[in-house]
Simulated scan of single mutants.
Amino acid sequence: MSRTVLVTGAAGFIGAALSQRLLARGERVVGLDNLNSYYDPALKQARLRQVEATASKGAWRFEPISLEDGDALTALFAEERPDVVVNLAAQAGVRYSLENPAAYIQSNLVGFGHILEGCRHHDVGHLVYASSSSVYGGNRNLPFHERQPVNHPVSLYAASKKANELMAHTYSHLYGVPATGLRFFTVYGPWGRPDMAPMLFARAILAGEPIKVFNHGRMQRDFTYIDDIVEGVLRCCDKPATANPDFDPLQPDPATAAAPHRVFNIGNSQPTELLSFIEVMEQALGRDAIKDFQPMQPGDVVATAADTKALEDWVGFRPSTAIEAGVAQFAEWYRYFYGV
């Protein structure tokens, strides 16, 4: 086994898929997740069983730890001395951040601070951490690229993710911690999160119940298939961030720095109209949706679209899974997992 990789949020949608890929290529993985009840813990446990099934003896360790537990996290860093840390643990969800802002402050700010301290004091070779397309906020200049300013978040979740980028840059600048932030664009696929549109739509369509279509369907999302996300994360894990030798402090590039810190979009670069996505879902499930058209929700944005040239230039990869293929895979898994 070549390296020890600490994956936080290892029972989550992306974390579990990433852990399986790391194990498959011979890495040792230490998984961390607090298994909270933001959504059904049974789904998280099922994901963990999938991970365990792919692990050879001694290659997988799981600890039910919260990022907010600084003492437990410090002890784990000291014991395991990970070579790479992939921080995917966070309080997720835009709308929930309006209901429970304290959860975002504790997990996404306090908890991320503990991760940075662990990396600083235990010579971690590379920190890869999840940011989000939500940081682009009220920006309507599509497609989004990393050189654009992200000064207008429209939810606390988005603000916490921008704060993560600033915090990571500071640790890179002060302590030389190589750090790569990845702005994920609307991830979907098998084993997805139940609070996100694909799972909500599938459940309602198969139950013959209405689905809520916000902003009366006049929305676009850059839906990105889980396998593409994981491939991008893996490639970034293998190429630690470096300082930009051409960084100009008189014209600073928000995507790079004079410190070893970089930020990349990971998106499919093919934004899909919400009503078109629903149509693809209907075809995959063989059922028509009952649409309940709703106004725009607070904290939401009208459209997202990723410019991924920087990622492609850095690691030679760009997501490319067509929405029809990805939704078909998701629908097949959903019917099997939930027996519908």
Rank of each mutant, 00 (worst) to 15 (best):
M1R: 00
V7F: 02
G9M: 06
A11D: 02
A16N: 06
L18C: 03
L18H: 00
A24I: 11
R25K: 14
E27K: 03
G31T: 11
N34P: 06
L35Q: 10
S56A: 15
G58Q: 05
F62L: 11
D69T: 14
A72V: 04
L73W: 13
L76R: 02
E79A: 15
E80P: 04
E80R: 02
V86G: 01
V86A: 10
G93T: 03
G93H: 04
S97A: 07
S97E: 01
L98A: 07
A103H: 12
S131N: 08
S134T: 06
V135R: 01
N141C: 13
P149L: 08
V150A: 14
S155T: 12
A158V: 08
A159F: 13
A168K: 00
H169L: 13
S172F: 00
S172P: 05
G176K: 09
G181K: 02
P190C: 09
P198V: 11
R203P: 02
H216I: 12
Y225E: 07
V233F: 10
D238G: 14
T242S: 11
P245Y: 08
L250D: 14
A258T: 05
A259N: 00
G267M: 06
E279T: 12
G286E: 09
A289G: 11
K291V: 13
F293K: 10
F293V: 10
Q294I: 08
M296V: 07
T304R: 05
L311F: 07
P319A: 00
P319C: 13
A322L: 11
A331T: 04
Y334F: 15
R335C: 12
G339C: 14
